[in-house]
Design a binder for these strands. Structure first.
Length: 311
DNA sequence: ACCCCGACCTGAGGGC
DNA sequence: TGCCCTCAGGTCGGGG
């Protein structure tokens, strides 16, 4: 699901409810995500205070006070939602309402550690795999496809862990420029679109924003990476930054199920120029948008605005 | 060192 | 209604 803007939006949404607060409860209902979560993880996290919540590529990280860092990835379908703790005054009606309506709760893999009837919040949904509770909120990690990741790693060796060690530059920092992009493209004849989704070239650009950035840069997605000129790389880097920045400002893109942590929908999808618009007229020139699979992912472009690549 | 492709999962939507 | 197929915002690892 989420590319950089959606992860960044999610991070900003959960931050006020997790950062600097003790985890009063950690519930792992489904250990089998992208990798199996070790059995002692919940216990290791409980009563820890999370600090320095941040994003690296599409990972969300948070330091625990016990020398470990929490690493979280939303995969394709992952979502974090915040349920703020009800104030004592406003909760009695809610609690009464809930105790009788326990119908929609699916059978959890391991038995929940807490009776659902005691929860002040709505019943857990299908695919609510992990629940982090602080004094201010309950944060739920829901992930239908379970490509997401939840791992606790030693902070001291974090950056040398394979998950993070080989990541390229952050696109919204000065570490990513037309020059660094141009250099990273030199040794590959793969389509530029595929390279934009390569995390060693630049992080955070996924299938949507690769197509959108290339449209804005006027570059055909099939252009061999090593034929991109320095000038084209400058233009492309600028448009990647602008596209991602605008998408963050719009709260990300909601396709099927992305929601911000507070349940609001992103609206950047309304400004897509090419993604998902196969056969529809280009907004700039009315030529029908084309699509083809590149890097095992559907790719969209305007054959007029994005001039043919050299053979 | 590259590059290609299947695998990991569930669910939504279309065609019949 | 139901079945069967394809497709979906991301990685990872094996083999050529």
């Amino acid at each position: 699901m989420p590319e950089l803007p959606e992860v960044e939006t999610t991070l900003q949404g959960i931050k006020p409810y997790l950062e600097g607060l003790p985890l009063t409860q950690v519930l792992i209902r489904t250990p089998k995500l992208r990798t199996e979560i070790p059995a002692d993880t919940a216990q290791k996290l409980t009563s820890q205070t999370l600090t320095n919540l941040r994003r690296r590529a599409k990972f969300i990280l948070a330091d625990a006070s016990n020398g470990h860092t929490l690493l979280l990835h939303l995969g394709m379908s992952g979502r974090l939602s915040v349920l703020p703790t009800a104030t004592p005054q406003s909760s009695p009606g809610v609690a009464a309402e809930r105790s009788e309506g326990g119908t929609a709760t699916p059978p959890p893999h391991p038995a929940p550690l807490t009776p659902l009837a005691l929860h002040p919040n709505p019943p857990l949904a299908k695919h609510d795999h992990i629940i982090l509770t602080t004094p201010k909120a309950e944060v739920r990690f829901n992930d239908a496809r379970r490509f997401g990741l939840f791992a606790l790693l030693p902070t001291a060796t974090l950056n040398s862990h394979p998950y993070l060690a080989n990541l390229g530059p952050e696109p919204l920092t000065n570490a990513f420029t037309g020059q660094t992009l141009h250099t990273a493209l030199q040794n590959s004849g793969q389509p530029i679109k595929v390279k934009l989704m390569d995390n060693t070239v630049v992080v955070g650009v996924g299938n949507i924003y690769a197509s959108e950035s290339l449209f804005r840069a006027g570059l055909h997605p099939a252009t061999p990476a090593n034929t991109i000129t320095r000038t084209q790389a400058e233009t492309l880097a600028r448009h990647i930054k602008a596209t991602l920045t605008e998408a963050i400002a719009a709260g990300g893109s909601t396709l099927r199920d992305f929601q911000q942590a507070d349940g609001q929908l992103g609206y950047f999808q309304h400004t897509f120029s090419v993604y998902g618009r196969k056969g529809q007229p280009c907004l700039a020139c009315t030529t029908p948008i084309q699509s083809a699979v590149m890097g095992q992912r559907n790719t969209f472009w305007c054959p007029t605005c994005q001039s043919e690549h050299r053979q």
